[in-house]
Design a binder for these strands. Sequence first.
DNA 1: GTCTATATATGGATAGAC
DNA 2: GTCTATCCATATATAGAC
Lengths: 224, 224
Amino acid sequence: MTTPDGPAGAGARSSGADTRERILVEASRLLAMKGYGGTTTRDIAAAVGISQPSLFFHFSTKLALVEELYRYDLVPAVQGMENLVVGAGSAGAKLYAMISAEITRVIDSPYDMRAHISLEALDDPDLAAYRDLLNQFDDMTRLLIRTGQESGQFVPGDSWLALQMVAGFLARANLFAAGDEIDRLSHPEEAASLILRSLLAEPATLDAVRREAAELLPKYATAE
Amino acid sequence: MTTPDGPAGAGARSSGADTRERILVEASRLLAMKGYGGTTTRDIAAAVGISQPSLFFHFSTKLALVEELYRYDLVPAVQGMENLVVGAGSAGAKLYAMISAEITRVIDSPYDMRAHISLEALDDPDLAAYRDLLNQFDDMTRLLIRTGQESGQFVPGDSWLALQMVAGFLARANLFAAGDEIDRLSHPEEAASLILRSLLAEPATLDAVRREAAELLPKYATAE
DNA sequence: GTCTATATATGGATAGAC
DNA sequence: GTCTATCCATATATAGAC
């Protein structure tokens, strides 16, 4: 169905429908690889196979393009996290559910979701809202960690350090999910277990945490 | 503070002597925050308090500037890691020593060492050597993980996932070390313990690992 | 060693034809 | 919806005075 038959003048209607989508896909790859400042609209257009000015038919500005990618990435994450935090369940199970859900989301995404990492574009005032979302996500993650520590489910320790481990891990998973290692991520459960093992005061409870998390998971997905 | 004893060459004026150093410091902060493409030579010059062309007296090109930062960051890391890998000791102790040494290095560095993260500039062919170093570091880390798993010291699992946890954690530690959270990193030992607890088959052996790591630590520092 | 002025390249975005 | 041609802002880097 993809008609790469090229510039058929005004005839490119059927293929034009998803040009916008292809722009987002290619832009996400390039942005993840080269950053916001390092990715030019010419690069994106070339990857899609259209001329550079044609981009501006689909997106008013370069920033509007990345804004859409940030939204796709961050809004469901924060929403899912909020649903999780306010509900019942142990901190460990919530953290487990969040991590496995996020890894799953990365795998399923058509985009290269490394927005978390390149905070570069988030400097722009127009994207302040997304920077806030990112901070909210980190804050809630840290809250979960602290709650688990205070309840005794987790070992005591610096919650900031633990947050960096969780957030760093998720960022790296994003980083390489689009590479040739996707298959390695086929097990979101293992990723969650890896982190939880580091935090749980009693590692033997991991299986119980996993079972509890399985029931919380739907709450996270409600976001989308 | 750092000792600006450097190569006080012929034309080194009192203030001029460390202008080069101040450029590196400010550039590292800006590059970490805004990326390579997002950081202009004007930004750097303004932060240092000199005119933009004056930068080119100290560094031939913008790329030469970041090359020096990459070298400062990566060469000692890879060298230390190599020293560690070829020597005696358990995989767990080696990993523990590496993590605590790297966290210490981040704290002590006058620069904002987030080079690991912004792979953006590493695309440039002129920096291919540093991309190689980065890959070597990751490869050796993964080797340590796999060795530990095969020896039974670590729980079995996907070594790629575990590598992402370690590397992601170190990257995030870099990311925020220059922020207002430096004090949180005053305990490289806790950082290493956090990761090791996730990997060790028998968490109770953590103290033994820590003691063994203390003896390996000098090997890592030999690099510098 | 640092400055001002400027050459030269490149990037985002617009105009208007088809 | 996509194209070509182009405007305009900004970026790296050089030239030459002080």
